[in-house]
Amino acid sequence: MEQDPAIRIKGLLTQFGSNVIHKDLDLNVRRGEILGLVGGSGSGKSVLMNTIIGLRRPNAGSIEVLGQNVDQANSATLKWLSSRWGVLFQDGALFSSLTVRQNVEVPLKTHTELSEHACAELAEIKVGLAGLPPDAAHKYPSELSGGMRKRAGLARALALDPDILFLDEPTAGLDPIGAASFDSLVQELQRALGLTILMVTHDMDSLYTVCDRVAVLLDRRIKVGTIAELMEDSHPWIAEYFGGPRGRAAADARRRVTDGRKT
């Protein structure tokens, strides 16, 4: 039997007034996989992510994260859950009055009783793991570029070595080189820390290089599979998405990289 999934969504219904966003949506995220979440603008990707992490209540259906029902969780369970997941918001959502290191220390101080010194050293390790230069630790978010803010946000999301990492458009707004290095960073961290990652993205290259499977939000529900499986799908949106010029270019690039490795 398959291991318990990290996230299990059953029959999710989300609606704003009469506007139905998700209906009968099911999704399982396996432990240790990187799942990319894609969908057209306004299809409710961010809403889905916010619902999973408990920022929004589902109108119906159940969401289990690490075996705990998010919707009916009491405050102790919610606290435990929040120490087991890390969230990277689109622009980092760093606390503007704190330096990068202090930002990373916030979850450590909230959830553990580590000494000041240990918190500081662990935070510096996370800052380094996220690929920031050591002197960035004492800078304020306003002194950082967009790419560095994302890395700092990632360092904060990783502060407690979570089981699950949520990334909301991690490579949006980064230049291609920055995006590629962010992708390989995510992959490296996933391997080293054994993370489960759910990543909202539109970056074709990320989907091809990083994601094990892709979930497509379509017609208020989700279709999930590897890219190869999804390419077989007859739905016009999916065909257009992966078969369009950008999708084909990313696929070609991916093929060249893997071919290069073989020879």
């Binding site: 290191r101 050293e121 510096e124 390790i125 380094g128 004492h138 080293a192």
Partner: peptide
Amino acid sequence: ADRQRLLEAVEQTEPAPSPP
């Protein structure tokens, strides 16, 4: 192998210089 990789990753991070 996994833990070795993690140890290496952590070892490679440099401590931050003391704040100005």
